[in-house]
Amino acid sequence: MEKTISHLPHKASPVLVKQANIFADLPAKLIGDFQQEFQLNEWHKGDYFNSALLTQRFFVIIEGQVEIKQSNPETGREATLDMLYAGDCFDLIVLLDDQPHDVIVSPLTTVKLLSVKLETMRQWLWTYPEFNKQFMPYLAQKMREKEELASSLILHNVATRLSRVILKHINKIKFYISGKEDEQQHIVNGLNDDTLARMSGTVRQIVNKQLQLWKKDGTIDKKRNQLIIKDLEALEEEAKYTQTLSNAPFTNSQPRNKS
């Protein structure tokens, strides 16, 4: 049975506010002013979120992962609209047009968030040019991600779409373990076949078939709700990236930070 999310009435600290991409480089005084308006929330996997709250408050993720999805009530089929990580915020659509947004907000892990009244967030954007200057590139990045998702669904096969989903995830998480001869093997936790299918616009059976093919040729190792990426270059080749995007996966020449 789904639980209802609990909104903890805690105030946020300036340190927490700076963890969000859109606030990170603001002057200390402005962050200090902003933090007085934020509330600290904590959600857990399986918690129920009433999407009507998106017309009241604006949310920023500090820790954890949140899946934004929509479903067809007639078929029960679901599609992932966005996967959000620490530093991301939502709902940008409601912020811009002030209209209800029929989405399912699903915490995939324990999630810590900051929230602020939606009207306050809009007022900040209108009042502070330095904040607007940081917000617009983030908005553009999210628009590019949506463009990439739409084009991938039309232009690329399942293997390419799935490889891009996995690469984007490990680029966001940047977590790996040492394998044989100190090889870096990236770990993908919490994304089961159903979730990967929603993210890549297909069904679980096809995702499972592709993962088994990659397991057979040594690209990945698959365990319950966990993928171990053993051959990152093979996955990058499958993804067929032709340009470096702001959220594109790192290459072997880029530094990889162990968490």
Rank of each mutant, 00 (worst) to 15 (best):
K174N: 02
F175C: 03
Y176M: 11
I177T: 05
I177H: 09
S178Y: 10
S178D: 10
G179V: 12
K180E: 13
K180Q: 02
K180F: 10
E181A: 12
E181R: 12
E181Y: 13
E181C: 11
D182T: 11
D182S: 08
E183C: 06
E183K: 05
Q185G: 02
Q185E: 11
Q185N: 14
H186P: 04
H186L: 08
V188H: 02
V188A: 01
V188I: 12
V188E: 01
N189Y: 04
G190V: 05
G190F: 02
G190I: 09
N192V: 04
N192T: 12
N192I: 08
N192S: 08
D193K: 13
D194K: 15
D194L: 09
D194E: 08
D194V: 11
T195I: 08
T195K: 13
T195G: 01
L196S: 03
L196P: 12
A197G: 03
R198G: 07
M199I: 06
M199D: 10
M199K: 00
M199P: 02
S200L: 01
S200W: 03
S200T: 03
G201N: 05
G201S: 12
T202D: 05
T202M: 09
V203L: 13
R204A: 11
R204H: 07
R204N: 10
Q205H: 07
Q205G: 01
I206Q: 10
I206V: 12
I206Y: 07
V207Y: 03
V207K: 08
N208Y: 10
N208V: 15
N208P: 15
Q210I: 03
L211N: 02
Q212A: 09
L213E: 08
L213C: 03
K215L: 06
K215Q: 10
K216D: 08
K216V: 09
K216I: 01
D217C: 14
G218P: 01
G218K: 02
T219V: 12
T219S: 13
I220L: 09
I220T: 02
I220A: 04
I220R: 01
K222V: 06
K223F: 06
K223M: 10
R224Q: 14
R224N: 10
R224E: 13
N225Q: 11
Q226I: 14
Q226C: 14
L227D: 05
L227G: 12
I228R: 03
I228Q: 00
I229L: 04
I229G: 01
I229V: 12
K230Y: 01
D231Y: 02
L232D: 11
E233H: 06
A234I: 04
A234R: 10
A234H: 05
L235T: 00
E236M: 15
E237S: 03
E238G: 00
A239E: 00
A239M: 00
K240S: 03
K240Y: 03
K240E: 13
K240H: 08
K240G: 08
Y241P: 07
